[in-house]
Design a binder for these strands. Sequence first.
DNA 1: TAGATTGTTAATCGATTAACAATC
DNA 2: TAGATTGTTAATCGATTAACAATC
Lengths: 208, 208
Amino acid sequence: MSKENASKNQLLRMPTYLYHLKMLKESGVEYVTAPKLARELDLNVELVKKDLALVSLDQGKPRVGRSIDVLITDMIAFLEYDQITEAVLIGCGSLGSALADYQGWSNFGLKIVAIFDNDMKLIGTKINNLTVLPLERLEEIQAIYHAPIGIITVSKQAAQIIAERLVKAGCRALWNFAPVHLRVPKRIIVQDESMASSLAILNHRLRQ
Amino acid sequence: MSKENASKNQLLRMPTYLYHLKMLKESGVEYVTAPKLARELDLNVELVKKDLALVSLDQGKPRVGRSIDVLITDMIAFLEYDQITEAVLIGCGSLGSALADYQGWSNFGLKIVAIFDNDMKLIGTKINNLTVLPLERLEEIQAIYHAPIGIITVSKQAAQIIAERLVKAGCRALWNFAPVHLRVPKRIIVQDESMASSLAILNHRLRQ
DNA sequence: TAGATTGTTAATCGATTAACAATC
DNA sequence: TAGATTGTTAATCGATTAACAATC
């Protein structure tokens, strides 16, 4: 199976499996079956079977399932968490700082190599070993790193301009935390991270 | 149209429309049509037509579209952004602090009424007018507020325990930022906010 | 009027779920 | 062996897209 066929929903589920598998491994479990995972993660069995088949390089054994170790390895390879992708982050407000401060990105194959802001009070301060750089230096720094990912944690007013600068500076993908629809060339990948959308679903379900 | 029928994807799109409508309003536009929104947000026209019909209390006018003002009002009513729902937040690390610090929640009908941590260095400090309270006081404070939403920004190790305490303390919905699947009673609404999943999609698309 | 937009009904598409034979 | 689990094929479900008559 090649991952070209992975659907968006499947991709979304994969990290959940990985977390859970790691937890099971820690508690000493050596083999895992689709029905077990389905029960523990509240998913449909057939769904889990198909997801596992997609990432697994070899078949599972009837009545036994799969080796957790092998499955974890396959999952990491599938998600390409072993290959580091570099990113620059623009906007060191509280959200941007929190992202820059997060120690766990390397587990997901992400490395933030430079962080920028245009606030004089922030420029020069350090977050997680990274110095906040003035926004003017974005192009100069990108010319060195060629980071494929740009993380946008600026205000909605600034987001479109920043997006355009990142694209010009060579970013091929934008992880957008600002609540605006970014207009960029077709070839550019935009992943919107909308807390508002997420909250809308929560609220809707809460109110029946 | 009643919002009982709103699909998950429709809910996800709604805040995007609202942001865009507000932006158009600011730039002086008075009427908007489905084809215009579809073009500007890179969506299918029929999709937009159905989404607007779902939230609109009255019909659009052929050749004219809808009044932006009325549509914004309808959208806010639909998303219930005018009704404040209270929340307690557990875990004032960098992500939790960023969420507590965010000034815009009231625009989405959310009000964080209390924030908790068990780190002595954080307890007593102030974030956005809220004092970080010791975790032991969670039940006592919840007995006063009865906040329906619990925001979980603790480590994955602590998340399940915190979830259970929040449920016992009367939360009906959990907004979970920890990378674990929470096991809670069926009646409890869980909205997972997984950066890892989001990043997985971005990375996958980036690598072709 | 002509034509863009509306709402709605039908067709398509894709993901989830169910069913089942094969396996250890 | 019996029975749980596997992979796969078929059925179902729901969302998106296309088609079209009605409207101003």
